[in-house]
Design a protein around this nucleic acid. Structure first.
Lengths: 225, 225
DNA sequence: CTCCATTTGTTGAATTTTCAACATACTAAT
DNA sequence: ATTAGTATGTTGAAAATTCAACAAATGGAG
């Protein structure tokens, strides 16, 4: 586990917990590590809720696929980010989403019940852990809200621009590196891929943005119309 | 405060805390109560985050209004439900949404920092409170996910049917009472009101549902096409 | 370098949504 | 009961999205 220590220390769940104690906790929390290849399914919709995942390397996507196979990407998580925690903290039994490897990756799993319910060993950091978990869940909540703000927009153009401006703010730059390819971006924005490409073209011609592959640059203040 | 006791005891934040202790806590948490008339703004986008609201009576709506005045209703909260807690638990400073009285209502406000950070009085229930708060936040997360699932659908019909089936499941009946009027339902589903009305008509003619005012009845198993 | 496979861009037709305007139904108050 | 005001339903035209099919560009593998 030691080789994962540095990445785990940047995980919100373990904030304020030093390395030595973290290692002790891991066994207490039933930690296991597993690797996945690109597109491999990590958790399926309907799976039993109960394990919390921490991305150690690579990236995973949280998504939903409906009856007709329409893929909806909820979020992409990079290393040190968690998944499953929000569901593990509620009373639901089954995962409402899929988690899939966006690329080759390693995932650490923890038993949620060991975090939520104080264990016999009385390891003193439970309160810290629960406090941290709450912050993680709240922050996730904020992320979902942001996604909601994006796809609440009615047109492809507004969705794209809202998304890009949000990313620009987050990355604090007008040059934005998007973690999605076109199809994935369309599946994140809940729009048609070809329509998205067409819209990008228009915005480029209008001088609103530049785009090379998945590198976008916002050129001027965007006023909707 | 005593007259609100029974409603507060059904609030997730105070689960497992008995009435007497609850009353003691309230003053410790800086509780205040205020009433609002219909459509009155309770919190505005941009307001300082920090107070957690509990609906004591009536109902409130959490919504966002964009540049062009398009209203997007995120959720409606009934008595004993909370708002603001997810934002108070993160590091953001400003509310990203509005909270408005859906009807005449009373709201109890608590200071978030008193819940998050142990107070000098060392009231013993802080851990319980934080644990409860985590569950509330996680459950809210689930709600946002459900809304996301609804508006991820591409067409008005799919959005409506997904919403209705979700409500039917929740209310455990094919007869669904929707808490929104048409315009509000449209603003929740992120679609055009008249288009929504037209779609309801079609579904009614197709024998999929009945609808009288805000009472919907699902008539047969719905298979998309 | 060439070839193959994948990704991205383009286009027009079909579908759907939105918009605007109006008709009808409903509610509450006088 | 009448009326004013609001909510809901209907319609056609305009706008936007989706779909399908293909063209162009990209990126690896051999």
């Amino acid at each position: 586990m030691e080789k994962y220590l540095s990445i785990l220390q940047t995980c919100g769940l373990f904030a304020g917990i030093d390395g030595k104690q973290l290692l002790t906790m891991l066994s207490c929390l039933g930690a296991t590590v597993r690797g996945y290849g690109k597109n491999q399914v990590i958790l399926s919709e309907g799976d039993k809720v109960g394990r919390i995942g921490v991305v150690l390397s690579g990236a995973v996507q949280v998504l939903r696929v409906d009856y007709y196979g329409n893929r909806s990407i909820l979020t992409e998580l990079q290393s040190s980010q968690m998944f499953g925690e929000s569901f593990a903290c509620t009373d639901i039994q089954k995962m409402p989403v899929d988690v899939v490897a966006a690329e080759q990756c390693e995932v650490l799993f923890l038993d949620a019940k060991h975090i939520l319910h104080v264990c016999g060993n009385a390891c003193g950091f439970h309160n810290q852990l629960i406090y941290n978990l709450m912050k993680v869940v709240a922050t996730k909540n904020l992320m979902v809200h942001q996604k909601l703000e994006v796809i609440s927009k009615r047109s492809t153009r507004e969705k794209l621009m809202t998304f890009l401006m949000m990313q620009a703010k987050r990355q604090n730059s007008n040059r934005i590196t998007v973690q999605f390819d076109r199809q994935e971006l369309a599946d994140y924005l809940e729009v048609d891929r070809s329509g998205l490409s067409a819209e990008i073209s228009k915005l480029r011609k209008a001088g609103v943005l530049e785009c090379r592959k998945n590198q976008f640059t916002l050129l001027k203040e965007y006023h909707r119309n």
